[in-house]
Design a protein around this nucleic acid. Structure first.
Lengths: 241, 241
DNA sequence: TGCTGAGATTAACATTTGTGAATCAGGCGG
DNA sequence: CCGCCTGATTCACAAATGTTAATCTCAGCA
């Protein structure tokens, strides 16, 4: 049981908070934990008593349909609250799986509950987080339906570049990406072979460099143009709500 | 300005509400309006002062990316709150377009705001609605990524069958579907020609009948099996939150 | 130094899906 | 009843993507 340095940071990214409000967040106790690559952090069907804040590494939300492959519906990075929606839905409808080694911090639901009761503005903050999740979902739906494979890969890389920049995990347009070609193929719904074809095409156009778990975007604007990426939907600029 | 019969119904579908709470909902004043097929109900980029409850017809959420086709990320039926997420996000990131002739009822944000302040349980109700939206989004992402075209069509039809049943718009496994093959192709990201191939394949397997705006599922279970549909994700059973 | 295993790459072929254009079917107004 | 229009259907061909299996590369290790 410790006080999180990340919680305040994670929650106030998208909203302008008062200093007392920030103080409340800073004082929330958390339970740290860590997971190895591929471990299940939260299991589908569970009704967790805690909410999970991702601090290091990446994590996917993976749906299990019987007799079908696992399907990824979201990709989380440090600073993301992974399962806030379960706050009301109670039961979680997908696994949360560690991609690369992960550190997380669990926050007791009861604590969030109590705080949001005392501080009505903060419940909006939680709501807002889930709304932005949903916004990302909608863009994913749109890209899945309409973009070609190279465009989808480009779009995802642009999205990650933007999101990771905000939490300081991008340097020289380069970021760590603990997901290999096979897994990325799975996330976007392509075969491994096709994913490799796509990666090579992007490389040939000098839009993507990808070696041993690190990705560099030599020409972010070019890649954004190719894939129709517009960072607006990420809501990365904090405003008053 | 009138009192809605639908609002209470729309909101208390997924949560058990007390009679006083229901009374509050029943007394909310609404502004009715109607739209013709294809008309834009809410425009992308707008910051509406009202939230829109769909009462009759269907409506799509369509994203506009410059120089690309419109992309659909959600399909709404009577009883759905179409733009609750804009309650906090302020600016709406997609058009809401009438599919078939629609009746809607607008509710002033200020009223919702005021009610949720007085009645903390009801703000959860609004939040819950947006969370279920997000849940549907995730399933759409998963189906887009992993299902074949016939499976996707089947899955969508099963989903509509289930959602429309709850609001009493299905009879003899038949429901009105104000969207033609071309539009459905657009929604799922296929070409018109391919959509037609798929429809015929499903017809040949006696899993789908579709004539002049009406859809019948002769074998709902068979279609669900084909498409891996499991209604659980729709949260159609009201429980206490 | 050579072995080994995971991930990346290539090849050949099958299947799915897209494209453009023509044709068909049926409802509806004149 | 006719003409017309919209949506559905068909056709031929091209492009995207899947499948299976073999091969390659290279960092880590004995």
């Amino acid at each position: 049981m410790a006080i999180s340095r990340y919680l305040e940071y994670a929650l106030c990214r998208r909203d302008a908070l008062s200093e007392p409000e920030r103080a409340v967040l800073r004082d929330i106790p958390v339970h740290p934990a860590s997971y190895l690559d591929g471990e299940v952090i939260i299991r589908q069907g569970a009704a967790p008593e805690q909410s999970c804040l991702l601090v290091k590494g990446m994590a996917t939300r993976e749906h299990r349909f019987e007799d079908r492959a696992r399907i990824t519906s979201a990709l989380h990075i440090p600073g993301d609250f992974v399962d806030l929606h379960a706050f009301l839905l109670t039961e979680i409808d997908h696994d949360v799986v560690a991609q690369g080694d992960c550190n997380v911090e669990f926050v007791d639901r009861a604590v969030l509950e109590q705080i949001s009761r005392k501080n009505p503005h903060l419940i909006r903050l939680l709501w807002l987080n889930t709304l932005i999740d949903a916004k990302l979902h909608r863009v994913w739906i749109a890209t899945r339906a309409r973009l070609s494979a190279p465009e989808q890969v480009g779009h995802l890389m642009c999205e990650l570049h933007a999101r990771l920049s905000v939490v300081g995990l991008v340097e020289d347009n380069t970021f760590a990406f603990p997901i290999d070609q096979r897994k990325l193929a799975g996330i976007l719904g392509y075969s491994t072979v096709h994913m490799n074809r796509v990666v090579q095409k992007l490389r040939a156009r000098y839009l993507l460099e990808w070696t041993r778990g690190r990705i560099r975007l030599p020409d972010p604007d070019g890649l954004a143009a190719l894939s129709g990426f517009d960072p607006e939907y990420l809501e990365l600029t904090p405003t008053h709500r």
